[in-house]
Simulated scan of single mutants.
Amino acid sequence: MSFLSTRPPRPAARSTARTGVLLVNLGTPESTRYGDVRRYLSEFLSDRRVIEINPWLWQPLLQGVILTTRPFRSGAAYRRIWNTARDESPLRSYTRAQAEKLRAALPSHGPVVDWAMRYGRPSIAERLEALQAAGCERILVVPLYPQYSATTTATVNDAVFRALMRLRRQPTLRIAPPFADHPLYIEGLAQSVRATLAGLPQQPELLVASFHGLPRRYVKAGDPYPAECNRTMVALRRALGLSARELPMTFQSRFGRERWLEPYTDARITALPARGIRHVAVVMPGFLSDCIETLDEIGHELREEFLEAGGETLTLIPCLNDSPAAIRLLQAIVAQETAGWN
């Protein structure tokens, strides 16, 4: 008597499990009002990866002097760039649009696409739960930072893992790597530079690349951020056919008294008129989307300083935002990082 069945095996049941994609950007206050800006800054500046100071020393200073005064200045900056039509910051508008356009670019049976902010709302934990509720048992998290730093990508990972710690049933998880020199990112940046410059009545005498800064001691502790930025610059200079002198790399957004990565964007650009350079353009390859650091810090504050120093025009090269180039990049990242899942 044979114990082997002569009947053909039944076909495996088709899995109803879905794949989710969560795009994550830095964050934004809910409004430009003092209370909302203070609440956002408190969450952001309380992150131990962002401010590596003993909280027993930092928190009294933060919750006292800094959060008493800084929300006024930050609120004014946000008001200058606020998307009044939707009553939200440009970063929220662009991140939502990236998710919506990526969803439309993917097959109808493809991944469920959502978005979140590391600080503020919608939170990472909230959107992970929403993806699970939509039947997603596999989730790809895409930090929208081109270059890796512990202060950006790693803190997104921290928030994701903390959210998973509260779940009894956890999804299978992947986190997309940075895309510092991804061919589609570099191609998109180069296209943005060429298109912007082609439409100018006065061509800039110098093109400057500005990245968000980082304290030098973070780098000494092992943060690879400068090397990541350099990867972007090598590829972008090659794509544009420019040398390091023709496209220098600088760092912005420093605060406090300690030394940050140099050269500083503001010092470098405001010194240009004394050298006879009065028309400049600035590209910001450290940001996928325009935000307060690009639109106001460079497009408003630095432009005013440059004009006061004797400059004539400072042109802002737009980030990729929700352009077709940005969506092609995100689509390629999703396809690569979900390989084997779909």
Rank of each mutant, 00 (worst) to 15 (best):
R121T: 05
A104D: 06
K101E: 15
R217V: 06
I81A: 02
Q203G: 08
D266M: 01
P273N: 14
I277M: 08
D223C: 12
P143L: 12
P90Y: 06
S253N: 06
D47Q: 06
S15D: 13
R10E: 08
P122W: 00
L295S: 03
C136Y: 11
N157W: 12
L45H: 04
S42C: 08
L164I: 14
A281M: 05
R217C: 07
R127V: 10
R245M: 01
G340V: 03
E308N: 02
L106V: 03
W56F: 12
G256K: 05
N83H: 11
P177C: 00
A163Y: 15
Y40L: 07
I317C: 07
I175H: 12
R10W: 04
P324E: 05
L206P: 09
I269R: 10
L247C: 00
R96F: 10
T265C: 10
A281Q: 13
R18E: 13
P177E: 04
N157L: 14
F161H: 14
R138Y: 08
F211E: 03
T69C: 05
T155A: 07
P107L: 13
T95N: 13
C319T: 08
G110D: 10
R10V: 12
P248K: 03
W260N: 09
R73M: 07
R216I: 03
F179S: 01
E30R: 02
H109Y: 14
A274F: 04
V160Y: 10
Y94I: 15
I139H: 00
R268L: 14
P9D: 03
A130S: 12
L206I: 14
M117V: 04
N25Y: 10
D223L: 12
R275I: 01
E337R: 02
L329Q: 02
R39W: 02
I124C: 10
Q59H: 15
Q132C: 00
A76F: 12
R278S: 06
L314Q: 12
D158G: 10
G75R: 07
R275C: 00
G135N: 12
V112C: 00
R33F: 05
P178V: 01
A104E: 12
P143A: 02
G120K: 08
V160T: 11
R39D: 15
T6Q: 06
L236A: 00
A77F: 06
S74Y: 03
Q147A: 02
R96D: 08
V156C: 10
